[in-house]
Simulated scan of single mutants.
Amino acid sequence: MLGISMQIALLLAACMGAANAARGAMELDLIFPRNETYAPTEIFPVIIAIQNTELAPFLNPQMTIEFLDLDSQVHSYPTFYDLRWANYSSSDPYRELKVFTSFNKEGRWRIAWQVRWNTCTEDSLAFLGDGITGNGTSRITMFTINNSGKVVDPVPATTNQNCTNSEAIVINVDDTLAVPDFITWEDYDGKTCASMASTTPAPTPCQVKFDSAAAADIFSSMTSLHCKQTREPGSSCPTDDKSAAEQLVGVGLVGLAATFGALGYLIV
């Protein structure tokens, strides 16, 4: 008669099949903002970089960010990132960019960001006890808006300058397991899940570096995203269908920085 351990092994082999093993650490880095002081601006970017994105399909990652005005204690509405469907081939490392307003006056701010992902183990898949498990962790970054602060410019952050003070979340995967058809979970659609390693390596935000073309694209995307939300008369946004990104192309990083700094005070 087969022992219990052998029965478990046979059940796993029959129900799970073979999975393509993947190992490594997927890292999410808050590239901008950092714990710094910035001048008032209407276009405030939040840039997240993701390293080792080949692990994302096994982790089913999702993320939220939320601002807190430390002076008034007023929270913003959480902004949700569904990273399950991201086009990771669009950039390397992959980046998520969103722009926010209401930073045109002095104040102290906290940005809280949380990452959630799914994992499994051989036991959880075999015995249906937990199946796919939800995990999560969060980080907090403080920054200040002050008239004496520097103009908001994400280029130094995206070109590997002063990177050691970047907040990061590391998810360490030591194996991948096939999910049996009889396991369903409302927040998980994958056929392969990640098994977590027992240790987590130190983050490596200084490995994130975007080239000049990517940095220029970030600038133009910031303006374009903001202009889609701001179409008021007298603003610096284009009034026709031509995007701000198209109008700014070819200006160069210095010109983009100057234009962006001006926009911070001209857009109402």
Rank of each mutant, 00 (worst) to 15 (best):
I43F: 06
P61F: 10
D123I: 03
E36W: 15
S89N: 11
N52E: 07
Y94L: 01
E36Q: 15
T53C: 01
T101A: 14
E122H: 09
C120K: 07
L83T: 00
R34C: 04
L59N: 00
Y88G: 04
T41V: 00
D92R: 12
K105Y: 13
R84Y: 04
R34W: 09
T121G: 11
Y81S: 00
T41I: 00
L97Q: 02
R108G: 01
L97C: 09
A112G: 01
C120I: 12
K98C: 06
P61N: 11
S91C: 02
L97S: 03
L55Y: 06
P78I: 12
R108C: 05
N104Y: 10
Q62W: 11
N118A: 09
F100Y: 13
R116N: 10
S91Q: 09
K98F: 08
M63F: 05
Q51V: 06
Y94K: 08
T37W: 02
L55I: 05
E66P: 02
N35Y: 00
E96C: 08
F103I: 05
P61E: 11
E106T: 13
P78T: 12
I65H: 09
Q73W: 15
E42S: 04
Y94I: 00
R34E: 10
L83P: 07
A49L: 00
F103C: 05
L55V: 00
Y81E: 12
E96K: 08
P93T: 03
S90L: 09
L83W: 11
I48Y: 09
E36H: 15
I111R: 09
E36P: 08
V74R: 15
R84H: 03
V46F: 00
T101L: 01
P33C: 04
R116W: 09
R84W: 04
D69A: 14
K98P: 02
K105G: 12
S91R: 10
Q62F: 11
W113Y: 14
P45T: 03
D92C: 08
V99F: 07
D92N: 15
T64K: 07
D69I: 14
S90I: 10
P57H: 03
W85F: 15
D82G: 12
E66D: 10
P93L: 09
A86H: 12
D69H: 14
L68K: 14
A56R: 00
M63Q: 08
A39N: 12
A112S: 14
N52K: 10
L59H: 01
A56I: 03
P40H: 08
T53Y: 02
A49Y: 00
T41Y: 01
G107Y: 00
E42V: 04
N118F: 06
H75K: 15
T79Q: 14
R95V: 13
H75Q: 14
F80N: 09
C120P: 03
Y77K: 15
F100P: 04
S102P: 00
L83V: 01
N87T: 13
I48G: 03
F80K: 12
I47N: 04
V99A: 01
W109L: 04
E66R: 15
T41R: 01
R116Q: 11
T101G: 10
T121M: 07
L59K: 08
T79H: 15
K98E: 09
Q51P: 02
T53L: 00
T101Q: 13
D82S: 13
Y88N: 04
I65D: 09
P40N: 02
W113C: 07
G107Q: 06
W85I: 13
D82C: 12
N87I: 13
E96Y: 11
I47P: 06
